[in-house]
């Protein structure tokens, strides 16, 4: 049954972009009918498409405008003020942004956030992809495995945080006991500035792979496991299998996963805050912890909003880059 995945897609493959799908409108109406009569059809079709599209988008767009875009706009406005909750906001121009440029804690928190992102995104992507690939087949054992891998996703942050703090206790924690039994050096985990980031990364990865495994599972249906196994047995390296078998078919969903993971990592907050409050000595102090503390602990809402705008800009640019990357790679078949 499994044939070459590329051969799976006769006719028009999804060549029009995992990124900015920018198919020429005329192409859409490319049908068997040609000639003068079809011009009117094309026109009507185009109008119909646009009408249906706008109607389809209306509820979500109105909702997003009102409950997300408008608050965002307000936040941007606040970013140009010195609002402190108790007195009316005054416009102070670019002062918040100028301050940001010279704030060492901002730079340090941003750096730490990037470090976290660079470690988090590929790890979760590869883990969840591997798990999805291995768990595609319908079988009773896979139902169990999938459920177990998904369980952390459903666990509340508060409980996940305290559980991992307990497991990663530097003195008597289970993980260090295990390391000791294997004659490996025990780690200080959250008790040292060197390993603190690791001690928040591990729980975050643990909690997220199940989620992205599901996303990839839902998208992986066209990549049969048998085919991957066959390729591996034929001597293809896992990297080759990934590049030539999995990725081409998973491009749209991979793009989605990577973008969502990146956004999530750059905005990471709850899990770390529950576990370490950004400590010890700022070792896990991410940008969002800084934003949160500025806004809610120090009431510097203007400065916090300005930092959020900067973070937004960063995420926006990164997403555009990812968009380009995924689209560029797509034109392979």
């Amino acid at each position: 049954m499994p044939t070459s995945p590329r051969a799976n897609k006769p006719g028009s493959p999804p060549e029009k972009g995992a990124g900015l799908g920018s198919g020429a409108p005329a192409e859409r109406a490319r049908g068997p009918v040609r000639g003068p009569a079809s011009i009117r059809t094309v026109d009507r079709d185009r109008r119909e498409q646009a009408l249906v599209a706008y109607l389809f988008l209306l509820p979500d767009v109105v909702g997003l405008l009102f409950f997300l875009a408008l608050p965002m706009l307000l936040a941007v406005v606040i970013g140009f003020t010195n609002w402190n909750v108790v007195t009316a906001p005054q416009f102070i121009g670019l002062q918040n942004f100028i301050r940001m440029a010279t704030d060492p804690l901002f730079a340090a928190s941003l750096g730490r956030t990037l470090l976290y992102t660079v470690s988090f995104v590929p790890t979760v992507y590869l883990f969840s992809l591997g798990m999805a690939v291995l768990l595609t087949r319908r079988s009773r054992s896979n139902v169990i495995f999938r459920t177990i891998y998904f369980m952390p996703v459903a666990m509340s942050l508060l409980v996940a945080g305290v559980t991992w703090r307990f497991l990663l206790d530097p003195n008597a924690g289970l993980v260090n006991m295990l390391l000791g039994a294997l004659h490996l050096p025990k780690l200080q985990w959250a008790g040292s500035v060197q390993t603190a980031m690791l001690s928040v990364l591990i729980p975050a990865i643990w909690k997220n792979v199940g989620y992205f495994m599901i996303i990839l599972l839902a998208g992986i249906q066209d990549v049969p496991r048998e085919y991957i196994e066959a390729a591996l047995l034929d001597g293809a390296s896992p990297l080759q299998v990934y590049r030539h078998v999995i990725l081409p078919l998973l491009k749209p969903v991979s793009f989605f996963v990577v973008v969502i993971l990146t956004i999530g990592a750059l905005q990471t907050f709850d899990q770390i805050y529950v576990m370490t409050r950004g400590g010890p000595a700022y070792a896990t102090h991410t940008l969002l912890i800084y934003i949160y503390e500025k806004a809610f602990k120090e009431w510097k809402l203007g400065y916090a909003a300005a930092m959020s705008v900067a973070l937004f800009a960063l995420i926006f640019i990164l997403t555009l880059i990812q968009m380009r990357y995924f689209r560029a790679d797509e034109r392979r078949d």
């Binding site: 008790g191 040292s192 500035v193 400590g279 010890p280 000595a281 700022y282 070792a283 503390e293 602990k297 120090e298 009431w299």
Partner: peptide, 18 residues
Amino acid sequence: PPEVAKALQEALQDVMFN
């Protein structure tokens, strides 16, 4: 004030962990 509390907190953390 929160800014001062934060300065003290940073000092303590630096002494203990840095």
